[in-house]
Design a protein around this nucleic acid. Structure first.
Lengths: 111, 111
DNA sequence: TTGACATGTGACTAAACAGTCACCTATAAT
DNA sequence: ATTATAGGTGACTGTTTAGTCACATGTCAA
């Protein structure tokens, strides 16, 4: 399974995120199928899929001469639990002291 | 405010994530203070802070000759709501596998 | 067995990025 | 006023990354 850093880096590219979206819509697609939906050659898509696979975000299964690609949401879930929630949760409940700090110190320009 | 892509790209670098961690611990730090905690020159840190600021993840406030940096968790919250939750929520099966992954991976890297 | 199809590899180019440095401006302290 | 401090800018270097291409392997179908 890819490291946390590999997952963050994999998610940093819009093409790779759209590949995940594509597999979210229809899981188990082949390289050729995915290629058809992106403005890029087969080789570019292949490289992106390799990055996603090494990060653990995509798993594969061979079927004859085809290679099926499946979305694996586990790394995203881990990022959520171990990183995102730390920053995104204080709106809900739990770390009330932090919540207070953020509200008092909000020098931000809103959304 | 930065686009979703800018936020993802900003989060892709481990130095920038550790800067967010640093501000999570102690908000409103100056550039010099942050520089002291990273194995990097002031200029490197400055560039990373600029990326974070352009993504909306950090806001600043001048105080005399100092520039205070504040964590703004709103973009992370947006990423969570609009993107991460889509993949992390559909979670019924595979829970035991997740536990296994967490336990295996919990002795891993910090950042 | 021939040919079409699906995927894979290594080399290559252009762009983006991390990090550093010399030099500069503005504020504070004495 | 002088000097030390905090931050800023533009140019530069080495590395990584996105994307393409020529070519090669394995698989199915007639």
């Amino acid at each position: 399974m890819g490291s946390m850093d590999e997952v963050f880096k994999a998610l940093a590219d819009p093409t790779r995120r759209s590949l995940l979206d594509e597999l979210f819509e229809k899981d188990g697609q082949t390289l050729s199928a995915l290629e058809g939906r992106l403005p890029m050659t087969r080789f570019g898509v292949m490289k992106h899929l390799k990055v996603l696979e090494e990060a653990g975000l995509v798993t594969t299964k061979r079927r004859g001469r085809e290679k099926l690609h499946f979305l694996n949401p586990v790394p995203i879930r881990l990022i959520h639990d171990r990183w995102v929630s730390k920053y995104a949760e204080p709106w809900a409940a739990g770390l009330s002291e932090l919540k207070k700090d953020i509200e008092e110190d909000s020098h931000g320009e809103g959304i």
